[in-house]
């Protein structure tokens, strides 16, 4: 049995003029955040993992099976999207009636319990649900067929902080079992600060970083100096922003020693890393 829930090796996907090149490994039992600005290739990566897009080259392994795999593999995958891919007129009881026959492991009691726990009425219609409730419904579906891998594509976009926090809690419970893994795509990186063990950072269709979250946060430092305190000719810096009085940039930790005295050095948040890595030099 594979130790990886996901493994993309030398995967290249062409969609019109956009080309995605991605390598990543998600060990079983972990949450990986897939981050990057809009258009970075997050959804293309997810559609490739779900088998909706076929790579021009490279290999995709999901739960130890190389794609294209038998459809039965999808019994073990749960998908949560920012908008549910369900008929809006369906009642939540009808959602179960429509989907349960596909899954051997579907547990009716589990579905009923999860709806109750998430405050969802079985008689409510999909189209009447708020975004937060829709997200919970999709999680309930995924957990009712005992998915081992949850794939979440921008599940928190448009959610209020309370709903986002609830999702974090749900994912934490899901990961109590070591067999469970999560790929969580988002551009709201603050959602990942608490939960993601691994991060893959995509930018313009390329992987800029893929590895442990702490490793990424330790690899860089956020530096603030006077306006001339950071010289790109001497120090590798990302997203350099200059104003008449200050300069701010993301600098590799190993190069912090090259800065002059008076620089303020901080451990960056994921959000700051993504913003600086994805942005170009700005001079105000």
């Amino acid at each position: 049995m594979s130790e990886y829930a996901l493994r993309l090796d030398g995967v290249r996907v062409q969609r019109g003029s956009f080309e995605l090149q991605v390598d990543l490994e998600l060990p079983e039992g972990y949450i990986m955040g897939l981050v990057g600005p809009n258009g970075a290739g997050k959804t293309t990566t997810i559609r490739t993992i779900l088998g909706m897009l076929t790579p021009a080259s490279g290999t995709v392994e999901v739960l130890g099976q190389r794609l294209p795999a038998a459809a039965g593999l999808r019994e073990q995958i749960g998908v949560v999207l920012d908008q549910a891919s369900l008929v809006e007129q369906w009642r939540l009881s009808q959602v179960e009636a429509a989907l349960a026959p596909f899954y051997r492991a579907w547990d009716r009691n589990s579905y009923a319990d999860l709806l109750k726990r998430f405050g969802l009425s079985a008689s409510a219609r999909v189209g009447e649900l708020s975004r937060g409730m829709t997200m919970k419904l999709q999680v309930a579906i995924a957990l009712s067929h005992d998915a081992r891998l949850l794939v979440l594509d921008e599940p928190t976009s448009g959610l209020d902080p309370v709903a986002r926090d609830e999702l974090t809690g749900i994912l934490g419970e899901f990961l109590v079992s070591e067999r469970h893994s999560v790929l969580f795509s988002t551009h709201i990186t603050s959602d990942l600060e608490q939960v993601a063990d691994q991060i893959t950072f995509l930018h313009e269709g390329r992987v800029w970083f893929s590895g442990a979250t702490d490793e990424l946060r330790d690899a860089y430092r956020l530096v603030r100096t006077g306006p001339d305190g950071i010289d790109p000719a001497i120090i590798e810096c990302h997203g350099l922003r200059r104003s008449p009085t200050t300069a701010e940039a993301l600098v590799p930790s190993a190069e912090v020693g090259l800065l002059g005295s008076g620089a303020v050095v901080e451990r960056p948040s994921l959000d700051q890393i993504v913003v600086h890595l994805a942005s170009k030099e700005v001079v105000a």
Partner: peptide, 21 residues
């Protein structure tokens, strides 16, 4: 028409059943 209106393509793609079926 119903599939397109409700954006069911991802649901179909994630179901454990082969496309020819």
């Amino acid at each position: 028409a119903a599939s397109e209106k409700s954006r069911l393509e991802t649901m179909y793609a994630s179901l454990p059943v082969e496309r020819p079926t």
